[in-house]
Every structure is written in structure tokens, then in C-alpha cells.
């Protein structure tokens, strides 16, 4: 019996079966999204600290202990800013983009297997649904870019969309190799299949592809082509300010958390403990933090790639490589090695 079923069973005698399901799902969804909303500012703090230390600085340290309250201060600043709608924007698409971008990212967290037996929405097609929902972002990017009535935004939005489309393919193919090895698309099943052998040991190419494609999906340096500040000022979010900008910023960090989580789940055994000791959500979070710090360090170390070089990498190298990787996964699965 999973945690969700158990909670529903407890509640059913009091309010009836259908109400119990609704209440439990709503409460758990709210809790998960609340957790992500709290974790993203935490990651902002982490980002600033990592960036600071990479750059021989200390990062924030004035607001709260170790500067921990800095994201809160930032949030207050963003909320209290005037809501500016620039002249000449296409108001409908411009405002819509701020919801189209973050909402799918937050929905995706409902499919994450956090703990043995605990996943808010354990659908049978978990990983596919997850990646499909996450793939809505190019729509938001183009909406924001086009709606802004700014040439930098248009160029940035189109670059972002082109990049997302190009890298969605290797991302999905790398995940598909894991599905082949598991024999199931269910998220919990993927984690459970890694009992004993984590998939990065048998799928190193898959991990490599997934990380690069994930980086492209997040869109930070070295592949921050969509918001390359020395070229397109801030890309598709040039014209956003105040809390609208805050939402886009939050999306960026929710994306980092998402990619780190997915990498841990697909390749690093999710909540599985090394040596099989004390399985649980803490291991998932620890692995996520490691991956996130790795991504952040990459962000601050490498220069930006050129747009055509990066597209070539995606279509000409990662795409075929992901196909080869799938074949390898198939052979491994068929041969019963994993």
C-alpha cells in the first residue's frame, strides 16, 4: 500500500471515498509545489554561494545567518516593485507567457518518486508524461519573445525555442534507454529497478547526454544562448520586471531542481541508498544537491558556446549518440545483463 492509498483509506470513512481522494491529492500537490517553491529560493542562495566561491568571493552574508535570508529579501524587492507593462507589448501573449513557462515545470514535480512508496501521482506512463509536460516551455518562450515587442526578445525567444526543440530529442532518447532497461515507464519502477546497480554504471553515455541536454533545457551558461546578456541583453525576459521577472527567475531554478532530480532518479538510483542502507528521500535530495552543484559550477566556469556550434552538437552528435545508446540499452536488457 502506498502512502497516498493509506492516507485516502484513513480519510474515506470520514468524508467519503471521492472527497478523500480529492482532498489528499490537493493537499499533497500543494505540499509538493510548496516544497519546490521553498527549495528554489534555497537554490538561489546556493547558486550565489557557489558562484561567489568560484569567483573568489564570499557571496551573500549580510541578510540573515550566512546570508540565508537573501532570497527572501530579493523576493520582497521583486514583489514590491511596480508592475510595468511596456508600451507596445502584445498584452495577452506577454502576460500569458509568465504562466505558460512556470506552470508545467511545477506540475512535473507531482510525478517525482520521492520516497519508497511515495509519489503524489503514480501514473503508469510516468516518465513520458513528465517529459511531455516539461516540453511545453518553447511555447512560453516564443510567446514571451514575440509578445515583448522587442527585437532582442524575439531573437532570444526563437533561440530558446530552437534549442529546446533540438535538445528535447536527445533528452527523451536518453530517458527512453532507461525505460528499456527498466521495462516500465512508471517512475517508482525505474527507481526500484536500480536496486543493486545504478544506471549510470551501465548507461554512462546516457548520463552524459542527459546532463548536456538538461543543461540546454535549463538554459544557463555555457548554453545560456536564449538570454545571453552580452548579446541579447536578457533574451525573451528583457521586458519583464517585478514579480513577472520573479516568476521567470523562479522557473529557471525550478528547472535546475527538476533536471537534478531527474538525473538522480534515472541514473543515480533515486532514493536508493548506496550499499542498500536507509533508503529514503534524504538520499534523493543529497544526490540532487550534488548534481545541482555540478550544474552550477559548470555554469560559472565555462564560456558561452556559439549557437550554430551548439545546434550542430545537438543534432549531429548527441542525437545519433542517443540512438546508439538506445541500442546498447536494448542489448543489455535483452541479454539479461541488468
Amino acid at each position: 500500500m502506498t502512502a497516498v492509498e493509506w492516507l485516502t483509506a484513513q480519510l474515506a470513512p470520514l468524508v467519503g471515498q471521492s472527497w478523500a481522494v480529492l482532498v489528499v491529492y490537493l493537499a499533497l500537490s500543494a505540499a509538493t509545489i510548496g516544497f519546490v517553491l521553498a527549495a528554489a529560493p534555497g537554490l538561489v542562495w546556493g547558486m550565489r554561494k557557489v558562484m561567489g566561491h568560484v569567483q573568489h568571493r564570499t557571496g551573500p552574508y549580510r541578510v540573515g545567518p550566512f546570508g540565508l535570508l537573501q532570497p527572501v529579501a530579493d523576493g520582497i524587492k521583486l514583489v514590491s516593485k511596480e508592475d510595468i507593462v511596456p508600451a507596445g507589448v502584445d498584452e495577452f501573449s506577454w502576460k500569458l507567457a509568465v504562466y505558460v513557462l512556470p506552470v508545467p515545470v511545477f506540475i512535473v514535480f507531482l510525478f517525482i518518486p520521492w520516497h519508497p512508496g511515495f509519489v503524489v501521482s503514480n501514473v503508469a506512463t510516468g516518465i513520458v508524461l513528465l517529459l511531455a509536460v516539461a516540453a511545453i516551455s518553447p511555447v512560453g518562450e516564443v510567446l514571451a519573445g514575440w509578445g515583448s515587442n522587442n527585437k532582442y526578445s524575439v531573437l532570444g525567444g526563437l533561440r530558446a525555442a530552437a534549442m529546446d526543440v533540438a535538445y528535447e530529442v536527445p533528452l527523451v532518447l536518453a530517458a527512453a534507454s532507461v525505460v528499456i532497461l527498466t521495462g516500465s515507464m512508471e517512475m517508482q519502477a525505474i527507481v526500484e529497478a536500480q536496486q543493486g546497480v545504478w544506471f549510470f554504471l551501465v548507461q554512462p553515455i546516457g548520463l552524459f547526454i542527459f546532463l548536456i541536454a538538461g543543461l540546454a533545457k535549463i538554459g544557463v551558461a555555457p548554453v545560456d544562448l536564449a538570454e545571453a546578456e552580452s548579446e541579447f541583453v536578457a533574451g525573451f525576459h528583457t521586458e519583464y520586471s517585478g514579480m513577472r521577472f520573479g516568476l521567470l527567475f523562479l522557473t529557471l531554478f525550478a528547472n535546475i531542481i527538476l533536471i537534478s532530480l531527474l538525473t538522480s532518479i534515472l541514473f543515480l538510483g533515486g532514493w536508493q541508498a548506496p550499499l542498500g542502507l536507509f533508503d529514503g528521500v534524504w538520499w534523493l535530495l543529497a544526490k540532487t544537491v550534488v548534481i545541482a552543484v555540478f550544474l552550477l559550477t559548470t555554469w560559472f566556469t565555462l564560456p558561452r558556446v556559439r549557437v550554430d556550434q551548439f545546434m550542430n552538437l545537438g543534432w549531429k552528435l548527441l542525437f545519433p549518440l542517443a540512438l546508439v545508446n538506445m541500442v546498447i540499452a536494448g542489448v543489455l536488457a535483452k541479454g539479461g545483463i541488468v
Binding site: Q55, A228, S230, F300, P303, R304
Partner: peptide, 16 residues
């Protein structure tokens, strides 16, 4: 130049 090419860290190292 580091900023131009997207490597923010060089900026801080050089300024130090």
C-alpha cells in the same frame, strides 16, 4: 572580454 564570451568568472578574477 570574458563577459562578452559569457564567462563571468574571469571578470571577477581579473578584477581582483
Amino acid at each position: 572580454f570574458g563577459i562578452d564570451i559569457g564567462a563571468m568568472t574571469t571578470f571577477f578574477w581579473c578584477f581582483r
